[in-house]
Design a protein around this nucleic acid. Structure first.
Length: 356
DNA sequence: GTCGGAATTA
DNA sequence: TAATTCCGAC
């Protein structure tokens, strides 16, 4: 931002926040954490604006719809964006074109019928920021419910349409909102959605094995959000059993120095005290009222994400951003739980701040 | 208002 | 690569 343009009206970012019931971890608001670019990206900027109360007359979260926001003053948002990018000629037409490019990337989608209303695709944002979470492995109750799984970054199944994840996470009542037939799963046109960092280089599913414990997260994890979810999802009573088939024993982990210790977040049988937060975990865990129930719903269905060879995998070994998923969620899978042994060489530890 | 193609830019 | 710019179509 050395173009001489003034950015004083660009929102400052401090700490993590709850805005109208919407939580994002710190990194989501920090320009320097904008992935894949040295410059701030539009979606990032939008989040910044949404975070700041002084811009709520310009852009704000849509009450009642998680992730949905309304641009109340398109011209002003465009002006702010243009100012940030040193593009004085910016207008809403151009800005909206940039937003539309996010449709294919699945970062954003339009709320049809509502003017200037868009909706963030949370899982995609999570994946963008935590690429390793696309590891094709079943979700662990540990991960989803906050037990110490900090060193096991598998969370979002690769190819999982964020719409579905989103609806699972945000549905007011489990089972009320039926996944809408994965509308985008078949409408891929040019497959431009590969812009987000993905685990194309991941050779094989990691299976949450010890190989996933690589790295030194203390040094490399992004800034951890310090907020505590307002609702603490109770552990499923059988979570230990659920974790059995595909989870290695959970090692005790050292707390982050200086990190808050929400020890009592997820107490449960066999569940060691949670000693720290994964920022992405807080994102999921901090989804707001009812999130616990929804997370439990999600976590109790690991078979959805049963690891198996993906017929949709292309020659490059990864699905297109829009096509994956569908066959993965249609029902429990038995057998072939370990198509690839969870050996070290099959895994690659990539932390969000890894250089490309 | 919204969409997306095409060319261009940094 | 992530927009920016322009524009025709709906």
């Amino acid at each position: 931002m050395h173009c001489g343009c003034v950015a004083e009206d660009a929102p400052a970012v401090l700490g993590s926040s709850w805005i109208s019931g919407m939580a994002f971890p710190d990194w989501a608001y920090k320009a320097e954490s904008s992935p894949g670019s040295r410059q701030i990206q539009l979606w990032h900027f939008i989040l910044e604006l949404l975070q700041k109360e002084e811009f709520h007359h310009v852009i704000a979260w849509q009450q009642g719809e998680y992730g949905e926001f309304v641009i109340k003053d398109p011209d002003e948002v465009a002006r702010l964006w243009g100012r940030r990018k040193c593009k004085p000629q910016m207008n809403y037409d151009k800005l909206s074109r940039a937003l539309r490019y996010y449709y294919n990337k699945r970062i954003l989608h339009k709320t049809k019928g509502k003017r200037f209303t868009y909706k963030f695709n949370f899982s995609k944002l999570i994946v963008i920021h935590h690429p390793l979470w696309e590891v094709r492995a079943p979700p662990s109750p540990h991960l989803l419910l906050g037990a110490p799984a900090l060193f096991r970054p598998a969370l979002v199944p690769m190819g999982m349409p964020s719409e579905l994840l989103h609806s699972m996470l945000f549905a007011r009542h489990v089972g009320q909102e039926t996944p809408r037939g994965l509308p985008e799963a078949t409408e891929d046109k040019k497959g431009s959605g590969g812009s987000a960092p993905r685990l194309g280089s991941l050779l094989a599913p990691c299976q949450l094995g010890p190989c996933c414990l690589l790295g030194s997260p203390q040094d490399e994890l992004p800034g951890l959000a310090a907020f505590t979810p307002p609702l603490l999802p109770p552990l499923p009573s059988d979570w230990t059993r659920l974790s059995g088939p595909f989870l290695p024993p959970v090692p005790l982990e050292q707390p982050f120095p200086g990190a808050p210790k929400p020890d009592s977040l997820f107490p449960g049988p066999g569940c060691p005290p949670v000693t720290h937060h994964f920022s992405g975990l807080t994102l999921l865990a901090g989804l707001g009222p009812g999130a616990g129930e929804r997370l439990r719903f999600l976590s109790l269905r690991p078979q959805w994400l049963g690891v198996k060879p993906d017929p949709l995998m292309g020659a490059k070994g990864r699905p297109s951003p829009r096509d994956g998923f569908s066959s993965d969620i249609h029902g429990p899978k038995t057998g072939d739980k370990y198509p690839v042994s969870p050996h070290l060489e099959n895994c690659r530890a990539v932390w969000p701040l890894d250089p490309p």
